[in-house]
Design a protein around this nucleic acid. Structure first.
Lengths: 129, 129
DNA sequence: TTAGGTGCAAAACCTTTGCCATCCC
DNA sequence: GGGATGGCAAAGGTTTTGCACCTAA
């Protein structure tokens, strides 16, 4: 089970790394297709799952419908607009000791924790409602 | 658009309020069916969405697949077991001022924020990997 | 009476998977 | 060469929706 280098996998990772929009698999599919026109959705999903397992990217599920992906791997969190669905980076670091406290108190083995903000982005505040 | 009181809606809310397991729509469907055998899944989903909109319950999406529901409305957060998928309450309150800071820094209108922990629950720690 | 709610089933949606051809090492 | 990977399409699972009937107020 070595890890092979394929055009498809490299293209997917490259496109994801160069965007900050936390795209969906579908958006990545459309984008990568500009470069590899006959790539299939199955391949996109398989590679995203692979890259997630190997820890090169991370998954987000702000709205509970579509999975979004993030190429950043440093300590940061996200803001999701409840109107337009866009996801933005927030440079509020997540303090690691929080997990330890919860682990001790409840007996869980805490591997990670996630902090997410929800509300209206700048554009959607203008639009009213 | 008044709000009608129906057996179905009341039963769903009652079942959800009396559990602490953050159930899925399907689990609630099975449970409520013990009381109202011919209730339909569509009704369960419609009412859960309704109750969520009116703020009586909240939605959780720990794993990004199935939506879970929570009848508790006070300030608390959750721990999700990455192995068995169960969701537990954590009595770590979420500090409200965090949202304000992010709002000021980034220009977002922050309505709420969520803190979630992930790892292994007690039972799944025993089972090994 | 009547607008909102329900049951049923089909549709919509996102994601995974089986199968065979293809490609990388 | 041989196993990992890709393309294609079908299947899978969750959630939504259209429609005719029902029911609470």
């Amino acid at each position: 089970m070595s890890t092979r280098k394929t055009r498809q996998r490299e293209a997917i990772l490259r496109v994801l790394k160069r965007t900050t929009t936390h795209p969906t698999a579908d958006w990545l599919y459309i984008e990568v297709r500009k470069e590899i026109p006959n790539i299939s959705k199955g391949t996109v999903y398989r590679n995203l799952n692979f890259l997630h397992k190997t820890g090169e990217i991370s998954e987000l599920n702000p709205d509970g419908r579509v999975t979004r992906y993030d190429g950043r791997q440093d300590n940061h969190c996200h803001f999701s607009c409840e109107k337009c669905g866009q996801v933005f980076d927030v440079d509020e670091p997540v303090s690691p000791e929080l997990g330890q406290r919860v682990a001790q108190e409840a007996g869980f083995q805490v591997n990670r924790h996630v902090l997410e903000f929800f509300g209206l982005c700048r554009d959607c505040q203008k639009g009213g409602e």
